[in-house]
Amino acid sequence: MTDTSNKNPVVSVAPSPHVFSMEMTVPVMMRDVLIALVPVVATAIYFFRWYALRQLIICVLFCLAAEVVFTRMRRRSLSLGDLSAVVTGVILGLSLPATAPWYVGVISAVVAVGIGKIVFGGLGMNIFNPAMVGRAFVMIAFAGSMAASGYIDATSGIDMLSQATPLSAFKQFGTAVPLSSLLWGTTNGSLGETSALACLLGGIYLCVRRVAAWQIPAGILATVTVVGAVANLVNLHSQWTVVHHLLGGALLLGAFFIATDPVTSPVTAAGKWIFGIGIGALVMLLRLFSGYPEGVMFAVLLMNALTPLINRWTIPRPFGGV
């Protein structure tokens, strides 16, 4: 920087434009994501107590550590200040079961940031959502800890941890939990997904701040509503209604916080709609027909892979173009 205390003014040159909007910067966007996650984190800690706290601390710390180590290995300059590793850590933590052993958190965090992000070239260059890369890795490597039974720990003293997650309870026994439990979050599940209300609250904040593109959650929720309604009509006796589909599982957490990662979603409005609709359709496909109770993670990863293609399909018509 130039010294402004000099007697004479010091002028510089730079290409136009010479003024910039300071309202939105990458660190501010990441900070907004963290602010939006406050209700989600708060409900997670409220319901799962130290299980939640432990998981979040492990994930954030090891995401930051992985950022430092892998950036050093690639001899790149470190940019912890953009807070993106913290965001990845929190979202990863929120996507894990309360009962997952400590090494699951550690390994998923290292894979998320190291393999999911830095290896691709760091923030902005990764193709897949880092948190989901980390989670997918441990889901396969530690299938036991991450499967339906892994969510249950009867010895914990926390009521919810003795129940099956709502989606697997339905998959196995065909029983549905009351909608109010899904709304408030008094069910078992990954730490951040249980309270639909908390996810909605934070999600709406993100959309209002335009940190998340509203088209993505709108596309996801609209598709899930349509497909869920059709599924309901086909099977009228199912206790799991379209509203359960919307409020249950990781749908809202995924729609507002995971799918909206700008780096791994399309840049144009039309592309964002396609991306959202694709995720919604894949989630329903996996929920209704696959062996897994939930499909948000795989749906996001699959659509991440399609993002470059979607960008190519949706080159906007320029002003005056045909």
Partner: peptide, 16 residues
């Protein structure tokens, strides 16, 4: 200096 203050340069996050 205040008027030409700019955002620190970082990688594109494809926010659109």
């Amino acid at each position: 200096h205040e008027e030409i203050r700019r955002v620190d340069q970082r990688a594109c996050i494809r926010c659109g």
